[in-house]
Design a protein around this nucleic acid. Structure first.
Lengths: 204, 204
DNA sequence: ACATACATTTGGACAATGTCCAAATTAATT
DNA sequence: AATTAATTTGGACATTGTCCAAATGTATGT
């Protein structure tokens, strides 16, 4: 494990525990038994460090989030479940999400791309689910509504969990928000779709 | 206007513009043409300053958010519209929401109360809307789902707007998220309810 | 009008933070 | 073994929120 990797791993651990802005570089250095300058050698600014973590999360998610013509509701929900677990691994990023976007230009620029990619992935998956008769929609506004709602939940579920459901275990939190998404889709599901959704929820 | 009031007003203005953590007390003092110590005389810590702003927002909202047996869907949606406008006025607080809760004990404690109050207000309003045949639900889980979804949207709409829809005007942002809520309720609305919701959306 | 008590404002100190850099050390290459 | 490059160190710097003693201003009672 290189020094850079050690720094990244411990930073993620401590950031997740205390929050990015409440872990000082000196504290991080002390835990790693290195000096502050050594951190800034690999990551000139704290933003660069955070940015590296953000890249790692992005990579993880892009391996899982795909647009698939043959998508089933269950597969779609399982995809979101994986994304949720990645969010837990990198929770510090999502909890500081708004600030990072406002302050960190690199993250902000990349996020625009990621968000747009993810939105179209969600949208085409929903359309695929409609085509294969898992969902049925009246018109395009239904698809837009589902996409917007899913984006909002996916992006902020962990923030709401942190402020409102911190007493619950992480697993229970994930169950709660996945159930919410399941219920959201249910309203637009065919009988076939409803059955699969019920199966997914039962297996949570 | 007392010094304390001047500080609060200018702080809100600058916090909204640049974000709470990016406005230093020295910068604030300079704009007000007073010295830093003068700010800390009225607000010993920056958290106290933020806390005072949070109290003001709370007051504003508590005057508007009520549980009403005679609630109509339109009245309910207009209530949320008002809340959204308050959120815009105090956007800095909502954009730093997660951090404030994690760091500021006073805000965090009060938030628990506020959140619980708001949740029950939403819940009893939804039940009232069911009773007066604007909405119809299968069982209690539908009510819970609606309450949870509404809470999430109300709490994080402005954060999502900041990172994803900053190109839109504030009015357009509000329209977008109110439409989303309208659509959410639509799925559970009776014919009577749907008609009122359509009227509300048309008037946005 | 004056003295006393209280409220407000000032100016500067303090520790902690992220950033930066010259020098020292270690590793790799010739 | 000598030279070059990569890594690590230790300390400086400006900025932040916080704190406090002294100075100034304001009101009250005599």
């Amino acid at each position: 494990m290189t020094t850079a990797e050690k720094i990244l791993a411990k930073a993620l651990e401590m950031f997740n525990e205390k929050g990015i802005e409440y872990v000082g570089l000196r504290e991080l250095a002390a835990v790693l038994n290195i000096r502050v300058g050594n951190i800034t050698y690999y990551f000139p600014t704290k933003d660069d460090l955070v940015n590296a973590l953000s890249l790692a999360l992005n990579k993880l998610n892009s391996e899982v989030v795909v647009a698939n013509e043959e998508m089933t509701v269950a597969a779609f929900l399982n995809m979101l479940k994986q994304v949720f677990h990645h969010h837990v691994q990198y929770r510090c990023l999502l909890l500081s999400f708004v600030h990072l976007i406002e302050q960190n230009k690199v993250i902000s620029e990349r996020y625009k791309q990621t968000a747009s990619d993810r939105n179209s992935a969600i949208e085409s998956n929903i359309k695929a689910l409609v085509k294969s008769a898992y969902l049925k929609v009246k018109d395009e506004t239904d698809v837009e509504y589902l996409t917007s709602s899913l984006s909002l939940i996916i992006r902020f579920w962990i923030s709401e969990a942190a402020v409102s459901h911190s007493r619950l275990s992480v697993e229970a939190q994930i169950r709660h928000y996945l159930s919410m998404i399941a219920k959201l889709l249910s309203a637009y599901a065919t009988a076939k779709g409803k059955k699969e959704i019920e199966g997914f929820v039962a297996g949570l």
